[in-house]
Computed example of a mutant assay.
Amino acid sequence: MAQGPAIGPMDGVDGVDGVDGVEGLDLLGGRGGGGVFRPVGLAPEFVRRTKGNNQQEQEYRSHRWPPSFKNAAWPPAQPQNPDDWPIAPEAVAPRLADFSPSNASLLILGEFVQVQLKSGPAVVAWNGLMRKAAKNVPATAQNDDMAKDIADQGGLKAELAELRQLAQFRAGVMGEALAQRNGIIGYYRGLLHFSVATHPHTYYLCAAALRVGQFLCMHYKGVFNRPRPMRLDPSIMSPIDPPAHSAYPSGHSIQSFLIARCLEQVVPPTVGSGLTDKQSPYWRLAERIAKLREVLGVHYPSDTVAGRRVAEAAFPLLMACPRIAGGALPADTATDEVLQKVPQLADHATGWLSRARAEWRG
């Protein structure tokens, strides 16, 4: 818990390994939301009262809350001016911090599952990002994404051999790989030096990407139900217990590449000259985070590739969420251009993406 505030209030949900630890982390740092235990009992008054003969009473009287006054009503009745304290006007403007990053990410998730975008004659939605062979139909590279990804990596035996070769890097990256189990956003914060206090919309955008990635990976893990590598090859012997869910696709891969894509929309993706978006520091950091899961032996290379592909396909849907884009999308924006020119979705000044961009202009 001592590490939590340094990384951020979404730390416990990063990478889905630590999802059980997310309860309570929203309550750090006085953010509110039920985390402060604030009982109010019968306390003694500041001083003992005096009697009519100016002698102190032997016992303290109770200092009640709410207090009561002999000659005044408190809280006061509705004042003449509705802006006077403590009676607030009915129309109180919502604030970003009314929802913690973790809870706000669930609001985005509720929008994400409803977004649909047109890609030519097809309609793209979250539950159509991967193909699974129908029951009683053999899985092939033509009808099943996992079968294709495994084939592209040279087959299962080649993937297991790759993991045995990657094990030689464990000693050098163990600390980093363990920190990234539940600290994905923390590494991007280290790259750009931002926090929920300094760049709140940027942080909330990353939190939304993290939550959506968690949702997508768990859904598709349930669909494909691939066993972890050490169940097939004991010689891999991961230095950590594998997460208690199946392997394909990699959640760390989906989440880290989704966050990278979001940050590329917020701050310039290139540092220096001649760099493409796939060479941006955000993208390279996503590659590193995803690859280290293979070094730990908990994911196959095909899991990582699949996660990157799902992130790329899900990114336009995430950007189309009304809170991020800045209001409900007009019907005529659901065209091929939406998938090719995602930043156009966030021109509205109230959207999280536009406000996140503004946080980096000063």
Rank of each mutant, 00 (worst) to 15 (best):
G128R: 15
G186T: 08
A161G: 07
A197N: 14
Q116F: 00
A208P: 13
Q116D: 00
P121L: 01
L166R: 14
M130V: 08
G155F: 14
G172Q: 12
V92A: 12
L96W: 09
R181M: 10
A207S: 15
A134P: 07
G175T: 12
V115W: 01
N182C: 08
L107A: 06
E176P: 02
I87V: 14
A133G: 11
E176T: 14
P138C: 04
N127M: 02
A88H: 11
P67E: 05
R211I: 03
R131E: 06
L160R: 09
S102M: 05
A77H: 03
F112V: 00
A141K: 15
R211M: 08
G155N: 13
P75T: 05
F69G: 00
A151D: 10
L96G: 03
D98S: 12
G120K: 08
K157A: 13
E90G: 02
W74K: 02
F99R: 12
D145S: 13
R170K: 14
K157H: 05
P86T: 12
K132Q: 07
F169M: 04
P76C: 05
G154A: 09
F69A: 03
N81F: 07
V196W: 00
V124D: 00
R211L: 01
D149N: 14
G154C: 09
F194Y: 15
P76E: 04
D84V: 03
K70Q: 11
P82Q: 03
Q180D: 12
L166G: 03
A179F: 10
H201N: 15
A209S: 13
A147V: 09
A207E: 02
A91V: 10
D98W: 15
A167P: 01
G110E: 04
K132D: 00
D152T: 12
F69H: 08
Q153W: 11
R189A: 13
D98T: 06
A125K: 01
E159I: 01
L192H: 05
P89K: 13
P75D: 02
F99V: 00
L106S: 11
A161D: 14
D145E: 07
G128T: 14
K135V: 11
Q165G: 08
A179V: 03
A134T: 02
T202W: 09
Y188H: 08
A147W: 09
P79E: 04
